[in-house]
Every structure is written in structure tokens, then in C-alpha cells.
Computed example of a mutant assay.
Amino acid sequence: MTTVDQAKAKAKAMAKRLRVALAARNLAVPHATALELVAAGLGHDDWNTACSALDRPAEIGPRFVEAIPILRIFDEAKAREFYCGFLGFEAGFEHRFEPGLPLYMEVARAGLRLHLSEHHGDASPGSAVFVPMRGVHAYHRELIDKRYGYARPGVDQAPWGDVLEVPDPFGNRLRFCERRDG
């Protein structure tokens, strides 16, 4: 198990490597700036917050890092047209147990990963995925500008934020939401 001192030393070493890499590209940054960048990369607001978090003893129990929704699809070509062509995701890994068997694949964009599966036991058709995001209005404009023949989603104002709901060709709904402060 990593001690607090080891964790801080590791973060400081990351900052040093960052400064060296940036200097090699003629981008000199002070050590304090590199520490702030490393803290942000670790998910903290600033270096002091990162140090405070590292000082706390490890939490007992699980820590969830991310969730990756699995959505049921029925047609590979339609899935690629919708998720990659329309929504702008990039295809990641693809898996079939053997040729001709159902596809299981990943698509990703801007930090969001989704798994798409033709396997009947992986997910129920008609699922909904709530996706907190920034820039929902810009994303809406991007989608509308594509003039996709099967979807012209709008942005709805909900009490919790602006929601862009996009149904896929398989009955699943993606709810992209830019939350309101407070």
C-alpha cells in the first residue's frame, strides 16, 4: 500500500517530469504551476487540495472510478452511422467470439465511453443514459448542423439543467445535460 509520503513524492515527481517535457518544447513553467497542473490531472482543484486529500487515510471500502453504460444495438452499420457519424464518437475496441457472432464494441468522445452490444443478455433495449457535460448548446448546434435524417433533437430546460435527449436507432435514449450551478 502506498504511504502518504510516497503519494506526495509521486505527485511531485510527475510535476518535475511535466516541467522537463514542457521545457523540451520551449514552454517553461514554474514548479508551482507544474504542481497545480498535476493536481488538476489528479482531479483536484489545486495543489493544496490534492495534498489535503493525500494526507487523509485511505477510505475503507470501494471507490468508484467511472461507469461505462452498455447499450443494446441490433445492427452494426446503423450503430456506426449513429454513434460515429452523427454523434461524433470514435470506435474503440471491437470483440466477437468468432466471425458471424454478435459484436461488442466501445465508442468514445471527450471522456465519455459507451459500450455497444449485440448480445441479448447485456442490456435491455430502451435504456436511458444520463450524461453530465459542458457545452450542451454547442453540441446541439453540431448535431443539428449535420442534418441527420433520423434525429433533430432539441434542448429542454429542466430544473436541474439544460437537457439534450437523443434517441438512438435501437430505442435507447442519451440524455446529455449541462447542469445548473447550485
Rank of each mutant, 00 (worst) to 15 (best):
G100F: 08
A123C: 09
I144V: 15
L114H: 02
A9V: 02
L18C: 06
D145I: 05
A151D: 12
F89P: 01
G100D: 06
V65E: 13
V129R: 00
L35P: 00
Y139D: 04
L112R: 03
L174D: 07
M133C: 14
E178S: 04
A91Y: 01
P153Q: 03
A39H: 02
P102N: 05
P159K: 13
F176S: 03
I73F: 04
V166Q: 05
T2P: 10
A7T: 13
R179Q: 10
P125L: 11
L54E: 03
E81R: 12
P132M: 06
E36T: 05
A40T: 02
G135F: 09
F89Y: 14
T3P: 11
F86W: 09
A151Y: 05
L54W: 02
D75P: 11
I144Q: 07
L174E: 08
A23P: 02
A23C: 01
P99H: 02
D156C: 05
M14K: 11
A108N: 09
S127E: 03
R56N: 14
G85R: 04
G126T: 02
N26T: 04
E178L: 04
H115M: 13
M1I: 11
D55L: 14
I68P: 09
R25E: 15
R56L: 15
E118P: 05
V155R: 05
R72D: 09
K12N: 10
F170S: 07
G61Y: 09
